[in-house]
């Protein structure tokens, strides 16, 4: 859905999306890194299970909810990527205990 500009010289950061290695850049938010990854990163809603992707990218819409390092319902657009971060696409409601 999105591609990086060539002049981007930021340091590479490796994250894992559903166990798969993805190269993000330092300063990316989780949501931006997911949209740039080329992977199918659609979550599904808690109410009807409909597929969604981030809508506002500024902390307002909560359509970027994602599980980060085992913790669910994080706003992916507000969290910067960190080396080795583990990301799971959230399907439906956040599970108890994560």
């Amino acid at each position: 859905m999105f591609k990086r500009i060539e002049e981007d010289r930021r340091r590479a950061v490796e994250i894992f999306v559903e166990g798969q290695s993805v190269t993000a850049r330092e300063g990316d938010t989780v949501a931006a890194a997911l949209l740039a990854s080329g992977l199918d990163v659609r979550r599904s809603t808690a109410v009807s299970g409909a597929p969604r992707l981030p809508y506002c990218m500024m902390g307002v819409c909560f359509d970027c909810l994602v599980t980060i390092d085992g913790m669910g319902n994080r706003q992916g657009c507000l969290v910067p990527v960190r080396e080795g971060m583990r990301i799971e696409i959230q399907k439906g409601k956040r599970e108890i205990g994560r």
Binding site: M1, R4, D28, A32, A36, C56, M57, C77
Partner: peptide, 17 residues
């Protein structure tokens, strides 16, 4: 998405739709 969302990605991560 919103235009603002695309602009945010463009500014902060150099991402183009």
């Amino acid at each position: 998405m919103t235009a603002g969302a695309a602009q945010t990605m463009l500014k902060s991560s150099g991402l183009l739709p």
